[in-house]
Design a protein around this nucleic acid. Sequence first.
DNA 1: TGCGATAGTTAGAGGCTATAACGCTCGTCA
DNA 2: TGACGAGCGTTATAGCCTCTAACTATCGCA
Lengths: 224, 224
Amino acid sequence: MKESETATPRQRYRAQVREEIKQHAWEQVATAGASALSLNAIAKQMGMTGPALYRYFANRDELITELIRDAYRSLADTFRARVEAGGSLPDLAAALRAWALADPQRYLLIYGTPVPGYQAPEETTRIAGEVMAAVLDACAAGQLPEPPPSPSPPSPSPSASALEAHLADHRAWAGPHPAPAPALRRALAFWSRLHGLLSLELAGHFTGMGFDPALLYAAETEAL
Amino acid sequence: MKESETATPRQRYRAQVREEIKQHAWEQVATAGASALSLNAIAKQMGMTGPALYRYFANRDELITELIRDAYRSLADTFRARVEAGGSLPDLAAALRAWALADPQRYLLIYGTPVPGYQAPEETTRIAGEVMAAVLDACAAGQLPEPPPSPSPPSPSPSASALEAHLADHRAWAGPHPAPAPALRRALAFWSRLHGLLSLELAGHFTGMGFDPALLYAAETEAL
DNA sequence: TGCGATAGTTAGAGGCTATAACGCTCGTCA
DNA sequence: TGACGAGCGTTATAGCCTCTAACTATCGCA
């Protein structure tokens, strides 16, 4: 709000119209999916002609990129808030499902099928990194500080320990995060398993199967 | 082949052109994704004008539906062959990954983001059921016939047993398959976990993270 | 051999993205 | 306070796309 106070009237108007465009864009995305988003239709809804929108977004891709950025931002903020409130991994899992079900197309916008040529800008990948960092925080928090090297307990399978060794060597994606290798592994399992369930559920692959996806989700959450 | 022998020349020609159209369609899908598929472009590649293709497919959706059906058919055949050769669950997992990596867009065509309004025809859901049946076969095969009701072994977590009880009551999706509840649970875990990994990998969410997705896949396969 | 079904054509309506060129208005600054 | 210029929105246009209508030409069967 500070910025909008100090800006010139022209800048304030511009920012306001951009927001209005994005709002209509979200409505279209929510109802028909990102692929059906039409600048022309948005302009008509706003009582303008199509080309006018090109004053605000260079092209359709730039608008979608902005929506993707905002979606990542929203998810990162949601996770960050949970983690700072002391949330554990199951808390994050529940938050993720709630966030996804609140607006399925928003989830699919960032984790759904990308168009082959698309390259996300640096800012987007940075925010995506924030999301992973929050997951890593939760994984590293609810964990034994340093499990002694007794190879007995629930018999870590060969692939699992091979993976952990590999991850210990390839932890660039975790940035400067101090999470130990088992936490890295848990974070990847969290991400991929829950994404698997959510994307199948949101894509409707469970409809008609009769069972309740929430129970499956809860069981997978607990298995982590 | 029998059919094409008994058919009239007209019918044979028609079937042949349909196949040629689908072949060009697959090329487009493989390079630019299903959303970029253009009947016009296909027609030009074949030396025809756009409207000519409407003699063979009522509209763009019907062509895509046919591609989806063929993709499911291909996956179901792949699974069925493995199961009949005595393949275990890890075998199916490896086959799934190979099938997905062979043509990522084909995988995403059936398991990627659907367009909101789309309703799959009965035949498609039936073939999708075949895929699940093969997984259920593998799950039921490599399993203890009837674990005695001793609630001790690796302490089944509350959510997991609640889920199994729920699945025992809602097994309509398994059809007449005789798989016990734990097998149903394993099949769903197989499907959702591996889909999670594959869709993230194919969507490029692992690129730039440095680690090898194959190792993560192997570890998850073993965890099943 | 002739006729009917069917393949492929052109023409065109209506949608989309995107650019170019034009007026008009609003805020700023002398 | 008044003039000027930046920026907003318009129309026109090009070039895609899907899909329909109407016409022509051809192929195969009776």
